[in-house]
């Protein structure tokens, strides 16, 4: 019996840091690693009509390990692993009697791990780098948990994401290095989930001799709406599909030493369907061997 519930915690809310990602593969033998904590608390969500409805307060807390390693100068291995994921719901209490109507619940486990490779389609050092990536989203999390089976730390399906990144680095004035990058991708999903078109654009600027990077992002997911719905899936299952959103985000990454830094980020959907209507936050520590 297939059982799926809504998965509000779209991993694209999670954002990597200034000097990883984008169309720039790592140099051979060079890596970038980041440990971060990402969290989202929401008591309302975008419905299928794009409007906002309330829901019992739900929290998702993920501890991510993100890593990039240059296998060659053009081929980089990428991992994005939620090594600890916690999904919980609050108690629902009667305002009249004080009795518990629905007891809160929590699920703790590893989340869904993304493994991928990125290949530089242009030569290293190109003025207009382009890279292609394939990422496999492994169903290592739990898709059903809690007493009512309405919690999850993974979507229970195998994603295959094909993505093209392009970007350009440039200077603003004499001292501020900056870049702009964009991507488009297709997420081929299994187990009745609809395929997705993903896109995003990012701008970053390095201040104070590139010790502080300020980054702004716009990301989006559009569902092909070609999968199952609650009407067509196995009648005993719980199923939600066709999540969409457009989100904005900002991040600050500060190099404490030449290679080690800290970062903090914020992202929030400004349009969506079947997704949390609340901001997500992330703080992290990174180790950038490319510096």
């Amino acid at each position: 019996m297939k059982r799926y519930i809504i998965f509000f915690a779209v991993s694209f809310f999670f954002s990597i840091s200034a000097n990883a990602g984008g169309p720039w593969p790592q140099q051979k033998g060079i890596g970038y690693y980041k440990l971060s904590q990402w969290w989202l608390n929401f008591d309302q969500h975008y419905t299928d009509s794009g409007l906002i409805d309330p829901n019992v307060t739900t929290g998702i807390y993920n501890t991510f390990f993100y890593g990039e390693y240059g296998i060659t100068d053009r081929l980089t291995g990428v991992i994005n692993a939620p090594i600890f994921s916690r999904n919980f719901t609050n108690n629902l209490i009667s305002g009249t009697t004080g009795e518990t109507i629905v007891k809160g619940d929590a699920l703790n486990s590893i989340g869904d791990i993304d493994l991928g490779i990125k290949y530089g389609l242009t030569k290293p050092g190109s003025a207009f780098p382009i890279a292609a990536s394939i990422v496999f989203g492994l169903p290592t999390g739990k898709s059903v948990g809690g007493e009512q089976g309405n919690l999850q730390t993974g979507d229970g399906e195998f994603n295959q994401i094909f993505q093209i990144d392009a970007g350009k680095g440039f200077k603003i004035g004499k001292n501020i290095n900056s870049y702009v990058s964009a991507y488009v991708g297709i997420n081929n999903r299994t187990n009745g989930f609809s395929e997705e078109f993903r896109y995003g654009i990012e701008y970053g600027a390095g201040l104070f001799n590139q010790k502080l990077w300020l980054i702004g992002r716009l990301n989006g997911v559009e569902s092909f709406k070609n999968g199952e719905t609650a009407e067509t899936i196995n009648s005993t299952s719980i199923f939600a599909n066709n999540t969409e959103f457009s989100s904005y985000g900002v991040e600050a990454a500060f190099y404490v030493t030449k290679q080690v830094g800290v970062s903090a980020s914020f992202a929030s959907a400004f349009r969506g369907e079947i997704i949390a209507a609340a901001p997500s936050y992330s703080v992290g520590v990174f180790y950038d061997l490319g510096k």
Binding site: F84, R86, F88, N90, N91, S94, G104, A106, V283, V285
Partner: peptide
Amino acid sequence: MKNLIFLIIPILFIGCIKDDILSDT
């Protein structure tokens, strides 16, 4: 010190189950 930071970060942000009050009169 670096290892300590890595350990502390996840612990600081573990969500706790609280109460939502429903108006049900």
